[in-house]
Amino acid sequence: MSLGLFATSTTSVTVGSTVNPADYSAMRETIKQISLPKIDQPKWLKDQIAAEVAAAGAKRAPGAGITVTYDVTTRGAITSSLSEFRLLANQTLNDSRGWARMNVSFTEVSSGGQFTLVLAEASQVPTFSSACSSEYSCRVGRYVIINQDRWQGATPSWNGGGGSLRDYRHMVVNHETGHWLGHGHRSCGGAGQAAPVMQQQSIDLQGCKFNPWPLASELYSPQLGI
């Protein structure tokens, strides 16, 4: 006797092989939206800087530049060409559109530079400081750290906006070196304008256009006293 009442098989479930946390949680996008807006320099600081720039300009003969030395190292498993990294980084730093406009030249030395430019495996970036994320590049003290994943593939927002990898590389080297030069983050000055190089362009353009080079208003360096 068969009652014929009960199904015994279970429905076959086909699922994706990888899971992406962002498909389930809004944490990533929430954190991305939290950033420090540009803090305008207070008047007392503007006055001090103006006085110092004037004094430095008076001391320096016209055309006399400052030379900044840096050494290059790596951390973690590096799959990018180190020689290409060194070449592009040096070209960027000394490009006439870059920080070199402050009458500064950057020279790579084998060791003991004023700052150390690091090409780091993404997972190694947080080993410099817990404030650094494996997602992005970072600057910690004398270390200007370029995240290899970003060096190789920029960011989705950069690529999505049609930015080239070469320009991203210019931008990331200029941005992180900018931190070493004494700059904090800046915000977009207005929709459609070129983004300050110290804006976190990898994360959000805030209506600005991609820009790999420092704006004229960014051409000063508390670190170098100019």
Binding site: R28, I31, A131, S133, E135, H185
Partner: peptide, 18 residues
Amino acid sequence: AGLDDAYAGLGAVTDASD
């Protein structure tokens, strides 16, 4: 710079959550 670092440090929350 400390403020910049502190806000950038929130990236670690994303890493932990991921």
